[in-house]
Design a protein around this nucleic acid. Structure first.
Lengths: 153, 153
DNA sequence: CATGAATCATTCTGGTCCTGAATGGTTTGG
DNA sequence: CCAAACCATTCAGGACCAGAATGATTCATG
């Protein structure tokens, strides 16, 4: 939820037992946590998402990336601006079509992304500390299926 | 993710296979969907969260509710304002302590909450359509454990 | 090959959501 | 009885994001 609905107690309705609700609240809590974690790197979640979308060797125009991430092209410009300032991505005009700006992840960008991934894994541990190995598998599988279904990655 | 990081492809790093990442992206997608759903009722996710926090018969001051939901008191005021305008909550000065504004869910509020719950259940179905009954159980259980662990509900 | 429509990136403007500071009424402890 | 603490409210401002407007480039079609 655009944070999110973020309720915590006193529920007599069953709303809070809903997967939608739990997914929403947990999602924001976890993302807020992650946001604080990456703050020191000068990054926001969307920057990390963009780097992940780029991948190590991938090449894509800003337009395509904006569509993939579900954001407006104008926002993609500012995200790319910032990552470029950090030296994390390179902007190159596509010689085939000089309207297109092609983004590529630099080595510095890959380093940043790796650090973010590492942080995420640590948070994963913390988050799933109360789960058995079997439960973790089941959770990962379920999330994967639902994400696919939502057309995500 | 106050959204969220929202990446979708080209990932060579493993970030997207992280529970943190999937939880974040799925959370925002689902919340966005829910947001559209409740738009017709004149509600935003936080309004629904507040109503759920209130519960049918619960009584709480705005201060306490703000703390529970993790928002600033000033935001709680405007959330309560809006719900009051809709006739969903009643604001009453606590006679024991006339500084406190006590909120209670009205019948209209309960009706609204019920409709939101119903919508959430429908979304649950849609969301988990690709999951077996066993997987659904496992997912619900895992989310519940993690939510508890995060101090949520 | 010329020109109008379409596409891409960029800038700018504005809206929404939220926090933190300032204010005023109320309570409480010494 | 007074100062400190507390609650609700208002207000100003910041972060984030979408949409319109602009300019450059490409494409389609006659």
């Amino acid at each position: 939820m655009n944070e999110a609905m973020g309720a915590t107690a006193g529920d007599a309705s069953g709303l809070t037992s809903t997967v939608v609700f739990r997914l929403g609240t947990l999602g924001t809590v976890v993302t807020d946590r992650f946001t604080r974690e990456i703050e020191g790197l000068g990054l926001k979640p969307k920057h990390v998402g963009l780097m992940a979308a780029l991948g190590r060797a991938a090449v894509a125009s800003q337009q395509e990336l904006a569509a993939r991430m579900g954001v407006a092209p104008s926002l993609m410009v500012s995200l790319a601006d910032h990552l470029e300032d950090l030296g994390a991505v390179q902007r190159v005009r596509d010689p085939r079509d000089r309207r297109r700006q092609v983004l590529t992840l630099t080595e510095e960008g890959q380093r940043l992304l790796d650090r973010c991934t590492s942080m995420a894994r640590t948070l994963d541990e913390e988050l799933m500390a109360g789960l058995t190995e079997k439960q973790r598998k089941a959770l990962a599988e379920a999330l994967h299926v639902m994400a696919k279904r939502a057309g995500l990655p």
